[in-house]
Design a protein around this nucleic acid. Structure first.
Lengths: 164, 164
DNA sequence: TATTGTTATACTCTATAACTATA
DNA sequence: TATAGTTATAGAGTATAACAATA
């Protein structure tokens, strides 16, 4: 069982600055732990992908396009939980960089495809991402890692319905 | 074992929009799952705390101050992984709202304390937060939840050193 | 009418550099 | 010289509303 009370008892990991160690009951909150762990992995990924001058969101979108030739940018957004409006600068950037191109599919929608350069970058990015992932998954027991991959989609599904 | 390859095989949870279902190997990435799950919980928390007109970061800071009378705002920041510079508007807001006050401690540092109104809001906020937390922890087996509380701090510790 | 892409805009959180006044 | 608080600024991600063109 996990102590899910908010009593000022816990400690947990804390920053290592000069000040004293403060009591911090939020350490007991799942949402807080997720947010902090996610921030650490995001920062590490951004660092790992720094050379490419692509943000994590852009790389992720590129991977999805690469796996789904002729998809629309709305579909990519739905897959990644990114709103249509916010896909616009992402796709623009990928096209400016010559990593993706698109042709009209429908008169109102476009079919996205990775270019040669895009495919090459995908291969490099996948290697970086795998390195990054393994740095973290190596910290965890396989059983614990499996529990994460079971739990996180359940959390997500709780309010994943009306995304766009 | 978890399939940590990037081959275009997986599916996992996806948005429910009108478009077709896209292949999405990023579902296999721990960092991605953390980010999505974290975003869902953050959005739910923000909704739950909406009445207070306080952002999640402000409520969290308020809780830490409430547990640590006479702490400095830099200490709160170190505890929560928020930079000194970004603590300024948070503390200002909490003081404007009459939830926290401070007195000089040191000539250069302040001692923060929750006011009566702040303490009252803390009690209400804790109830909301507990409701929010339980909505999500109820989705998970106790053993899985325990695995999360074991794994997430380990992930965090990987690059939690030089925060401020 | 509904959908795709788009624009404009605002909000939240984060990051860095530099300043001040203390210590 | 280091620390606490501050200012200014930029970046990244997300949110909403509204529009044009198309279906």
């Amino acid at each position: 069982m996990v102590d899910s009370s908010l009593s000022p008892s816990s400690s947990g990991p804390q920053a290592s600055g000069g000040g004293r160690l403060l009591a911090n009951s939020v350490e007991q909150l799942l949402g807080y732990q997720l947010r902090r762990a996610s921030a650490v992995m995001m920062a590490d990924l951004a660092r790992e992908l720094g050379d490419f001058e692509l943000r994590p969101a852009e790389v992720t979108a590129l991977l999805v396009v690469s796996e789904n030739p002729a998809c629309s940018q709305t579909e990519v957004g739905q897959t990644l939980g990114i709103k249509r409006a916010n896909m616009v600068p992402i796709v623009s950037r990928l096209m400016e960089r010559g990593l993706v191109d698109r042709e009209r599919a429908d008169g109102r929608s476009h079919a996205l495809r990775v270019t040669e350069a895009g495919a090459a970058l995908v291969r490099e990015a996948q290697a970086r991402i795998q390195r990054h992932e393994q740095r973290f998954s190596a910290l965890l027991d396989p059983a614990v890692l499996e529990a994460l991959f079971k739990a996180l989609p359940l959390i997500r599904a709780q309010r994943d319905e009306e995304e766009s």
